[in-house]
């Protein structure tokens, strides 16, 4: 099953490589990983998407918790949560396709953030499935570049992952 693990980690040099190294050394699957500072500059927040059986996910969370730099973590998939991913897609356009692309981007609540006579860059956020769905509507031959952030997430309700 797919799991989204959200981690608060000390903002130390090398903290990221400890997490990445753990996954490669133990042969765990890692689909995406995002890292950025939090409101407290001494900590970073990492969101990691992985897949595995219950037993493997249990080991992954235990091994992550065991890293000295990891302060706290939660498996978002275990409760109600919101998930978002940012995508930018550069699409080759021809005069007869430009309107259609704009319309579809609109439907997906995307925005066109760069325009040249022959291309658009569409910006879009949403769940990964929504971004996949958008890409499926675009003629793959016209896609020049896809840049995705990987999902980040937050739990619903009042409770949160903090110190």
């Amino acid at each position: 099953m797919r799991h989204i693990i959200s981690i608060l980690i000390e903002n130390e040099s090398g903290a990221l490589s400890r997490v990445a190294g753990l996954f490669s050394a133990r042969g765990y699957n890692i689909e995406s990983l995002t890292v950025a500072p939090t409101e407290d500059s001494s900590m970073s927040r990492m969101t990691l998407v992985t897949r595995g059986s219950e037993q493997i996910i249990e080991q992954i969370t235990k091994q992550l918790n065991k890293l000295i730099d990891v302060i706290k973590l939660i498996d978002l998939a275990e409760s109600q949560h919101i998930e978002r991913e940012l995508m930018m897609v550069k699409i080759r356009t021809a005069s007869e396709t430009r309107d259609e692309i704009r319309r579809v981007a609109d439907i997906f609540r995307g925005r066109i953030i760069d325009v040249t006579p022959t291309s658009y860059v569409v910006e879009m956020t949403g769940t990964s499935e929504k971004l996949d769905a958008f890409l499926a509507t675009v003629d793959s031959g016209t896609i020049i570049e896809v840049v995705r952030s990987g999902p980040t997430g937050i739990s619903r309700g009042e409770k949160g992952l903090h110190l």
Partner: peptide, 11 residues
Amino acid sequence: VDPASISKTVK
């Protein structure tokens, strides 16, 4: 003492 040792190979 190490939770990661528990149920690692044998449940």
